[in-house]
Write a protein that binds this DNA or RNA. Structure first.
Lengths: 201, 201, 201, 201
DNA sequence: GATGAATGAGATTTCATTCAT
DNA sequence: GATGAATGAAATCTCATTCAT
């Protein structure tokens, strides 16, 4: 692992645990076992590190999602695959994912108008994949035809993010949680008695 | 509104927008229109403010949840009521809720061992209410009997938290979102063909 | 005890323990069980309290010294009486004496040019009494005739101050210490073989 | 002189003059001609500076005392040597010695329980050397055999400390003072008519 | 590339003092 | 007399960043 990667790993761990703003570069340097100056040699600034982490994780998460999405035949299959991928990815990238959840858009919405675009776009792009999922499922009949794509995508992505966030508090078994979340969604999304929802109000 | 409340309101708004660590007390003082020193007169320290916000919002959220939970006859009704309450509460307390989601346990897990208990316990207690909800629904037959209470509670709470978190990015219509989330959950939780879940794998 | 006296007592105790600069008025108010504002009602400022303590203790110490000095027939008697009085006084006024030792001239030399005079004059006046003691003893033959008044006074006063100061660290029995100090001085000051001092170098 | 030493020198001078608590770090930085931040780069905190000064001066004073003590043949010689060393040391380290006298145990007794040990132990160790001095002199007959080691050590050390402290007020000639103090002690400690002390009461 | 001393702006906190009640 | 809210200046300390080596 190169020095740059060491720094990145240290920063990811610390950002995930304490948040971006609450993590001093000195702590990163110490954790990585390098001089503080070296951080600024590789990444121009502190936000530079965050951006690097976010770009990397977003890129990998996104391409993973896209790959699963495209390899599925039905919308339902895609839903299963994407949820599965989320937890799978989260198992190996807990910290990076946490940074994504924690500090986007926190550190970006206000502070960093220009970079804002890039990063929160990551979240937005994922949302779009979910939207396409719902749409496809509605078309191919594997999902209920009365699901509003935008809002449903929102609910599912919210659920995944929220669960990952919650895992900071109570550490439940990931694989069982993954199964539960998948079943939960499938039952909610699969076609059934179409007059069901009228009950909800 | 007393000075103390003014400060609290200003802090809540700023913490929600920028995060706890990224909000200087000077900004709070300015926003509240008071001298910076007054903040420390009322709240001993900066975390003192956060703690006060968290205690307050947790207390109100929890008592709201409990009230709904107890006034419902079936587990299903309770689920509907609690989700409804979440979005209702979130409409009037967007900022406070966001602070709760954002900075617990972030600022607490490490830094504040003693206070840690109180604050993250808030989250834990909410989880417990959800757990009781599921258990009740299983008993009274209004919810599927194969739902693992703990994990299901986790999934639902995660969903609610995640959705509120996401609303920072894309501001969708809350009431429609609330309906969608409720329907989503009801479909997922209501008794149906009990062999459904076998499909998921 | 009036409120004013209560404040004075609290301040004396805290100044003695922590020093003037390191004692906040809030601590004094708390210790005295009064509102902070009351301190400024009675004493115009924080230094006002110190001045009040110093004037009081200096005045009582000085008048005590003068009384003993004048009631003695020989210089030697005066030395005994003054040392005895120092420890006697210090037993009942440990804190006040400590403040005198600790914060004069510390808080005065630089900060308080105008008040400077009064306070350090207290110390100076005590020194003068000792000087007169030596002079008298030289004249009446009860003390060695080769003692330089100024320096000897300095040595004795330094000794008394230093011992009181040291008592903060190791708390030895005061009465025994008093006896020892008195004997020590008497042996040093009493006429003896006048060629003694040549040995010292 | 390194930057660190420059800071240390500046701090020593200012602490000696104004006391620890009354000296802001900004003043130290200004006096040393460095950025205020550098102080905290080298010494973790303000007390860090004080501790560093105290350790240094205690260490040098102690080792000086020990060296003299061991190179003397009789207890009397040791007394002479130690007093001489005190004034000699005080001439070259006036400020550091003043800090030692002034702010130990002032800043330590309460505030710094853990470090307390180290620093006030310095004083204690010096006291022990004096104790050994007396004991040796009693054994070898160069000092009175009726001197209680502990209390006598206390009186002498108190004297030396007090004189150094007093020198802040009236600046007398050091070498003459040193001679006077030495003679004073010698006369008080040397064997003489052993019934002398009965006179004191 | 790599270090860590050095900076200076700014963050949190303290505190003497004032003032309305 | 008595309170304690309120202030604002200043104190301690943090931290991203630069730069000489």
């Amino acid at each position: 692992m190169s020095r740059k990667e060491t720094i990145l790993a240290a920063a990811t761990a610390l950002f995930a645990r304490n948040g971006f703003s609450a993590t001093p570069t000195s702590a990163i340097a110490k954790e990585a076992g390098v001089a503080e100056g070296l951080i600024f040699h590789y990444f121009k600034s502190k936000v530079g590190i965050l951006l690097c982490i976010l770009e990397d994780v977003t890129e990998r998460y996104l391409s993973g999602c896209r790959a699963r999405f495209e390899n599925c035949r039905t919308g339902l299959d895609a839903v299963k695959a994407l949820i599965g991928f989320h937890f799978e990815f989260g198992t190996e990238n807990t910290d990076a994912l946490l940074v994504l959840i924690r500090d986007v858009p926190g550190s970006f919405c206000q502070n960093l108008a220009p970079t804002n675009q890039n990063s929160s776009n990551g979240m937005y792009k994922i949302l779009c994949i979910w939207e396409k999922c719902i749409e496809r499922g509605r078309r191919d009949g594997s999902l209920r035809h009365d699901l509003p794509p935008r809002e449903t995508a929102f609910v599912i992505q919210g659920m995944l993010i929220g669960i990952s966030r919650l895992r900071l508090l109570a550490s439940l078994d990931v694989s069982f949680l993954s199964t539960q979340a998948t079943d939960f969604c499938i039952r909610a999304l699969r076609p059934g008695a179409e007059n069901e929802q009228t009950i909800s109000k």
